[in-house]
């Protein structure tokens, strides 16, 4: 305990709290690495939240719920892919529309689920490992989704860095004309990347409604999707830095809640906006310090591809 704050609880909370943003940011990272800027993360997350919630309560199975959340996010991302990759619509405008669409549709679907409790996602039992002081609660006191999300981030990093599929994805995001000239299917790669990104965002959303909160409320993502977008930029499109960014955002969120609970004389409004503010300030400062960081953006990011010849 330092100044009324329990550090162990803080770190344990941070790991679970960061899961939605971490998943969404990792998914968006993959989409952006393929050269597509999808601003609809917030919309995909909340569709995942409501889709996952609906299926989990209907079937009583959280696993099916998470699966449904991922599918819902991927479906919305596929809609985005059809619009931007086939009909060549503007990516920024389409992404914003996707967020508005997702927020509206989820509110409509979610009407009947307000006040309902979802089936509980059980925590994994590591036996005696959970009893180790400090490390036990921090590392071994979570549900399976937390571990799965960490594995997913690691796997995404490894696939992007070491495999041929990852190389092709990066190549498409770097220079789609050259990739096309070499015979790679730019549009197909981007469809896949977007669907994967959507699935992860949906999974993150489902984690919010099934585990973090756990109930359905309208607009419950509360800007987490936008923070995920910001984290991707601040992380210079590197998965390991996405992890740090997500932990930082969630750490400050958890900290400000504890500060409120500990009764510090800081206005609540300041505390509530602290995670957003600090994350954005860090982003700006890092961009200013590392001009290289901004230049690390995939060169074809946000540009429409059309095989003209």
């Amino acid at each position: 305990m330092i100044g009324g704050i329990d550090i162990i609880v803080l770190i344990a909370t941070l790991m679970a709290a960061s899961t939605p943003v971490l998943l969404a940011a990792t998914g968006e990272l993959v989409a952006e690495k393929s050269g597509v800027l999808n601003l609809g993360v917030e919309g995909m997350m909340i569709m995942g939240a409501v889709g996952g919630f609906a299926v989990a309560t209907a079937t009583g199975s959280p696993v099916l719920g998470f699966l449904a959340g991922a599918v819902a996010g991927a479906l919305l991302a596929t809609l985005f892919a059809i619009l931007t990759q086939i009909f060549l619509s503007n990516q920024v405008a389409t992404g914003l529309a996707l967020t508005l669409f997702g927020l509206g549709l989820s509110a409509l679907i979610g009407k009947g689920y307000e006040g309902v409790r979802p089936p509980q996602t059980t925590k994994l039992d590591f036996g005696p490992l959970g009893d180790i002081p400090v490390l036990g609660p921090v590392l071994f006191g979570h549900d399976w989704v937390v571990y799965a999300s960490l594995v997913l981030v690691g796997a995404t990093w490894a696939v992007l860095k070491f495999t041929r599929a990852g190389l092709i994805l990066r190549a498409v995001g770097e220079n789609h004309d050259a990739a096309h000239a070499l015979g790679y299917r730019v549009v197909a790669v981007r469809f896949a990347a977007l669907a994967y990104g959507g699935a992860l965002a949906g999974l993150g959303g489902a984690y919010l409604s099934l585990v973090r909160v756990p109930q359905w409320t309208e607009g419950m993502t509360a800007g987490a999707g936008w923070i995920a977008l910001a984290i991707v930029v601040f992380a210079s499109w590197k998965p390991e830095r996405v992890l740090i960014g997500a932990y930082m955002f969630s750490g400050i969120t958890a900290l400000q809640l504890q500060l409120q609970a500990a009764g510090y004389a800081i206005p609540v409004h300041l505390l509530s906006m602290a995670p957003y503010l600090i994350t954005i300030i860090v982003l700006v400062v890092l961009s200013a310090l590392h001009r290289h960081g901004v230049a690390a953006a995939p060169a074809a990011l946000g540009r429409s591809f059309h095989a003209s010849n």
Binding site: L167, I168, E174, N175, A178, G183, A296
Partner: peptide, 28 residues
């Protein structure tokens, strides 16, 4: 075409600036 033994060096280079030489070669 490449499988049949036809290769091409493009006028506008079909290279990826942010990737290294080996990765660029592997893509082709």
């Amino acid at each position: 075409a490449r499988a049949s033994g036809v290769a091409m060096v493009f006028q506008h280079f079909s290279l990826f600036e942010a990737l290294n030489v080996a990765e660029n070669v592997a893509l082709g």
